[in-house]
């Protein structure tokens, strides 16, 4: 009888080992692909949270910007101060905590914050935030450069993205600042009263005309005006010292729910009017008149 080359147990063992190895390989693949799918689910879930986060950051930034512009409008307007206040008041960490939960952990890092004049274009972000789609030219764009990390609580899957969010505030800040500068240029200007007739009327008409020149379309202005009549040392000239104060320049284009709509000119604007003094004008000396002006360019 021929003796078997391999013992029986060795053949069985070899075949079982091969099959077990094959099975373990298959199981490894199943586990690997299952984990991959689970991680994909987490990534998709993170994308949902990421969309929510973009919305919440956008709305929060818009409201903070609005509040800063609103309060800044009543004092000396300074864009670098606006930027610094925004940096202080944007609480992105708090937002990350509010949007995140026991499934997804969120962290937001602000790389840059930029304020820029808008050239007037359609922005998709405006619709997202509940504003008209078109950003008016001369308005302010807040650009947030952020690094957002979203991951599952055990940190085995997630997303990390760098995003630039452009948030437009519809008040035309840059336009209003140009109007303000034009009004500043009027300061200490001297005008000659040339026409005969009512001096006060002439002064008011001149002020109105000069202020209207400074305004842009869709802006209006309200202020108080005091005219103080005096004479020079030789009693030969009538001097009318005009003081414009409480000047508020309003953007009539801003009709949304946001509260920042106007900016103030803090320091008073002084204008001088002169005219040769005659008997009719003598009675004006010592008189002070106050007017409220409201001007709108058509």
């Amino acid at each position: 009888m021929v003796k078997p080359f391999f013992p029986i147990s060795a053949l069985y063992l070899a075949s079982f080992i091969i099959v077990v190895l094959l099975l373990s390989n298959v199981i490894c693949h199943i586990v690997f692909y299952n984990n991959l799918i689970v991680k994909l689910i987490i990534v998709k879930l993170c994308n949902i949270y990421f969309t929510n986060l973009k919305y919440v950051i956008g709305r929060h930034s818009l409201l903070v910007l609005d509040d800063v512009l609103y309060h800044m409008g009543n004092r000396e307007f300074n864009l670098s101060l606006v930027k610094s206040l925004l940096k202080d008041r944007l609480s992105l960490r708090k937002i990350a905590k509010e949007v995140g939960d026991d499934r997804v952990k969120i962290s937001v890092i602000m790389r840059h914050l930029t304020l820029k004049e808008s050239l007037g274009s359609e922005q998709d972000m405006n619709i997202v935030l509940g504003l008209p789609q078109e950003s008016p030219s001369g308005s302010i764009d807040l650009i947030l450069d952020l690094i957002v990390t979203l991951s599952s609580l055990n940190g085995d899957a997630g997303i990390r993205r760098r995003i630039k969010l452009t948030i437009n505030h519809p008040m035309r800040v840059y336009t209003l600042l140009r109007v303000r500068n034009n009004i500043f240029l009027m300061n200490s200007t001297t005008y000659t009263i040339e026409e005969e007739g009512n001096v006060t009327e002439f002064i008011i008409n001149t002020i109105n005309r000069e202020l209207l020149k400074c305004l842009h379309r869709h802006t209006s202005l309200k202020c108080k005006c005091t005219i103080k009549f005096d004479s020079d040392n030789n009693f030969s000239m009538l001097l009318a010292l005009v003081k414009l104060y409480d000047i508020m320049i309003k953007d009539n284009f801003q009709t949304t729910f946001l509260k920042a709509k106007e900016i103030k000119v803090t320091s008073p604007i002084i204008l001088n009017f002169t005219c040769p003094l005659n008997e009719d004008l003598c009675k004006l000396i010592g008189e002070t008149l106050t007017f409220h002006l409201f001007l709108k360019k058509n």
Binding site: I37, L40, K44, N47, I48, Y55, L129, G130
Partner: peptide, 28 residues
Amino acid sequence: SLSKLRKVSILEKNIKSLYENGYFGKLA
């Protein structure tokens, strides 16, 4: 797992569509 993935993908797409079409903005 694939059915969960499909479900989350559809949810992601729909929430993004609501976001882009301004539904959340309108509500706010």
